[in-house]
Design a binder for these strands. Structure first.
Lengths: 220, 220
DNA sequence: TACGTTTGACAACGAATAATGTCAATATGG
DNA sequence: CCATATTGACATTATTCGTTGTCAAACGTA
């Protein structure tokens, strides 16, 4: 232990024109981008701290400066990608005609387009997320719940899901979100062997069918 | 190398009243059961060869007698559980009234009941399966495809999915299967916080809605 | 009974990797 | 210019685990 405590002084001083906090958060961001690249390419299992550092162009010391372990970085990567996707989907929805089917189509289009254009993102969001740890499982569950809630609010009229015949609205929504996720997963694992538009329309058809079913029940 | 080749002789002789093949396949089966227990309890990542041997009551030598590595055992475990589930589902369907909705309900009931009564099985089939390796990903994709095909045949009339509006029947089926899988996953991760019957009915509602939608399209 | 087979307990070797530590080179502010 | 904060390359330590090998005891068969 040679560290000395200098009460006033130059600890945490500027470097390269940036404050300590700025440098730290820049390095942290570098690791998040490296994580997106490495986890998306090699998967979580095959990723090592060294490979993440190599990709980030930084050394282990700085990795542990920002993250307790690679699982913590993965959680951050996941949250970052979800946030970006969410922003894109919301933007597309806002730009679409204010009509339920068009809204849903616009959101689904951006979702599937992202999965297609960024296979690494697809791999992280759809596949790698599972089975890492209990904490990560919880993160997935919470994220999916948020997405389900968001869909319910945004395309509210489609989701006027009747409570008839012993069903539960939240479970129905979960099923619809699940159908979309699963179609995307299947599409990804099949190396995008179907045209984007067909995938979007097929996924959308499930929402539309459920909406009609609900309206039919309301009438009865 | 002290192994000598005795051409006629007692190599591969009986032991404990069982032939070599019988003993081998019994040991193999022990490892599969151990894998179900360990992978279901600890997950694939946390499972070691030693822990699998301890659970099986056998030593490493016999592990490598039957499997190249723990991934190979996992594949076998997965196939075994899928087969059992498939048999149970088919049996329930055969016993149900020969009417599409009742058939689908019976199948879904057995599916969700299995997930509820065997959380380890649920964990392996719904969560651990992802992100282990490219080979395992392929196994999942093929299994899901088979299940989709089976559902299409068994409840054929429900799946009279119209090809209208730019959709694809296989993708629609994938979406329906995905909704069920995802509801089960959600239910499992939420520690089975909803009543079984509500889960079954909600999952079923999506199939029913899609069927009505298809019939409506046929009429048009 | 005598021989080789089979079994199980456990040692041992090597590889990989997480996490921490060392040290010299460099940059900064006074 | 000097003291010190900062950085980066690399070493080190400790642990874990996969895989193969050793050996004695138990067993079956001729």
């Amino acid at each position: 232990m040679t560290t000395r405590i200098s009460s006033s002084s130059s600890r945490g001083r500027a470097y390269g024109g940036r404050s300590l906090d700025e440098r730290r958060s820049k390095r942290r961001a570098q690791f998040v981008e490296a994580g997106i690249a490495v986890f998306g390419r090699d998967g979580f299992r095959a990723a090592t701290v060294k490979s993440l550092c190599r990709e980030a162009g930084l050394t282990e010391r700085y990795f542990y400066e920002s993250f307790a372990n690679s699982e913590a970085l993965f959680a951050e990567v996941y949250k970052t990608l979800v946030k970006r996707l969410e922003d894109d989907v919301v933007a597309a929805i806002d730009a679409a005609p204010a009509e339920p089917e068009a809204t849903a189509r616009a959101g689904l289009h951006v979702f599937f387009e992202t999965m297609y254009r960024q296979p690494g993102t697809a791999r992280i969001l759809l596949i790698e997320i599972f089975g890492i740890s209990g904490d990560i499982d919880r993160l997935y569950r919470e994220t999916t719940q948020n997405f389900t809630r968001m869909l319910q609010e945004l395309v509210g009229s489609i989701f006027a899901l009747g409570e008839g015949s012993g069903t539960d609205a939240r479970i129905l929504s979960t099923g619809l979100v699940g159908s979309t996720i699963h179609i995307a997963m299947y599409w990804t694992l099949n190396r995008y062997g179907d045209p984007l538009e067909v995938v979007v329309e097929s996924s959308l058809a499930l929402y539309v069918a459920m909406a009609r079913q609900s309206r039919a029940q309301d009438r009865a």
